[in-house]
Design a protein around this nucleic acid. Structure first.
Lengths: 342, 342
DNA sequence: TTGTAGGCGTTATCAT
DNA sequence: ATGATAACGCCTACAA
């Protein structure tokens, strides 16, 4: 099997007795090229099996029509939907998407940021690793006016685009909902508190309790690290074993909420009568488990689309200003059986 | 905000009074460069904030350390795990991963294949779109000796790498399992039959029935197009409404199997006594639904890793031969409550 | 409307 | 052990 060499615009130029510049322009419908020439060139390009070399174009123009994505791990419902939204939007605009996973490691995140920079991505979308506290490794993008969007897990301070939900009000709404169902002792599965997605949810929870004159009982607030099913089981068992167990649980994700449901069922507790439960994210499992899990909707695909659009419009307008623009997307309380007492 | 120009090896060369070639070599620890020089160069590169430009390197060497991935859609548990495995393996080898979604459209797949070629990917991993019948748009990669791996949804005929499970034997095993549980009338949710993942599963199902002297009843074989939850509901209702309903269901995916469980429960049918159910994939929902869904394990992450490794080792050895290499990964019957009668 | 020519940053080749 | 130079394929002033 012989490898044949790639056809270049130079080859086409030679065949048609035209200049390479003419070919280059004809191929992108430049207005100064006659319709006939354009047609002729495109036909020949097709016949010869020409494939543009985006590397060469990128090198020349120092831009790549590529968006880099830096997330913790792909195989989570929320993240894969987020990426799907990014890819969809990027593809329509003729952009490629490079995906990288930090696996929630800070050092990996730093390395990947470098690698993405080396690939000369046109823009970058990032959801921070759990471990990350310092975000100075993103400064390199700012310095080069490469649009940077933080999505969902955003840093507290960084002058750039941020696309997120209002975690505080979501936490507040979730808790308020449980209160309205008659819950008096509401527990909270809290995620890692240095990620403000989670600390804000907790803040909303606490404020709702205060607002409704319910005591804030530290025993009922469980701090998670990974928010896994196993952690959820442990927390649930702990809570249900209390002398004075909770009658409501607000979990910062659905996975742990589901484990609470399973755990309660095993113990013969009635849901939602004995304990009402609400999760966060609206993962597929939420609608499938029995009883259906009430939850907070998290518009993953839309967040992806929005993030990609921020990048694209920044590139289009080639703004020179380093603006801070925070976009909040809506969430809603989705009530299913796990919390419907009335 | 001023954009500063990128630092190049040329800049470093100037500062150190060395040739660019020396810098280039020093940066990659070339053996002909003295240890001192290497150290000096690296230090200076660091100080000046040098970032290699992979575009330039790629253009020069006509290779990019990038793997292109072409799948239907990302936000499915199986696919996102597959990609996770690919990315992980690629990253360790210093490769980037470009993700594209065909959304199961043939024309999109053709366009994306072109786009990936234009990006000069070093290799490509593809799981075919549902619509795709003709695969000639992949010939361009073969012609250039760019390693191509089809994974899971592979074409019937195409001389290249294929990574898959033995769908026939998986279908056979699933059906046999139901038979061993005492099922006599086993229905099958069959996926689109021109994708051989699904046709093979069906073939295994049919052969198992024959082997055990059970009649093959065409009424019990439902042909799906998308294998969605909704399609599953429709099929389940149809089956349970039959004068002589099935006492076992083998579904080609978990999503539809779950809908069958829900549907059966609503009708007051006992699982697995009245109807035993087995799915395919071992999606997260399988272990969460009640009763737990028996299923066929599908090693998604491992398939991703394996596919990526095929690419990497091909590139390393720079084989010139167009070999056909099919890798089968193991699947297992994972028995949960939905089919455990004994 | 088309052509000329230089350069994007890197690396491989050949020389020193 | 290091240097000089050409080439990768494309685009964009500028010129004609």
């Amino acid at each position: 099997m012989k490898e044949t060499k790639d056809v270049t615009i130079y080859d086409i130029a030679e065949r048609l007795n035209l200049a390479t510049s003419t070919i280059s322009r004809a191929l992108k419908d430049h207005h100064t090229i006659s319709a006939k020439t354009i047609k002729k060139v495109k036909k020949m390009a097709d016949e010869m099996g020409y494939r543009p070399n985006t590397l060469a174009a990128g090198l020349r123009g120092n831009k790549t029509k590529t968006i880099g994505v830096l997330i913790s791990r792909i195989n989570r419902p929320f993240i894969s939907s987020l990426i799907s939204g990014i890819e969809e939007t990027a593809q329509k605009a003729g952009y490629n998407v490079i995906i990288t996973q930090s696996h929630d490691s800070y050092t990996d995140e730093v390395d990947l940021a470098k690698a993405l920079y080396s690939s000369r991505v046109s823009g970058i979308i990032c959801s921070l690793a759990m471990e990350t506290r310092d975000t100075s490794h993103f400064q390199q993008f700012m310095d080069k006016n490469i649009p940077l969007v933080f999505v969902d897990r955003v840093p507290k301070e960084f002058n750039t685009y941020r696309v997120m939900i209002d975690n505080y009000s979501a936490g507040y709404k979730a808790t308020k909902h449980l209160i309205e169902q008659g819950c008096k002792r509401i527990a909270h599965f809290a995620g890692s508190q240095h990620r403000n997605t989670y600390s804000e949810r907790k803040r909303g929870y606490v404020d709702a309790l205060i607002e409704y004159n319910l005591p804030v009982d530290e025993d009922l607030i469980i701090n998670f690290t990974t928010m896994s099913y196993e952690e959820g089981e442990k927390a649930s068992n702990y809570l249900f074993d209390l002398a004075n167990p909770p009658d409501g649980i607000f979990s910062s994700n659905d996975t742990a909420a589901v484990s609470a449901i399973q755990c309660a069922k095993k113990r013969g507790l009635k849901i939602p009568q004995d304990v009402a439960i609400i999760g966060f994210n609206d993962d597929p499992i939420a609608s499938i488990i029995d009883p259906g899990l009430s939850t907070i909707t998290h518009p993953a695909v839309k967040m992806g689309q929005t993030s990609a659009k921020k990048i694209l419009s920044h590139l289009k307008s080639s703004k020179k200003d380093n603006l801070t623009e925070i976009t909040f997307l809506n969430t809603e309380v989705l009530v299913r059986e796990s919390s419907k007492r009335k």
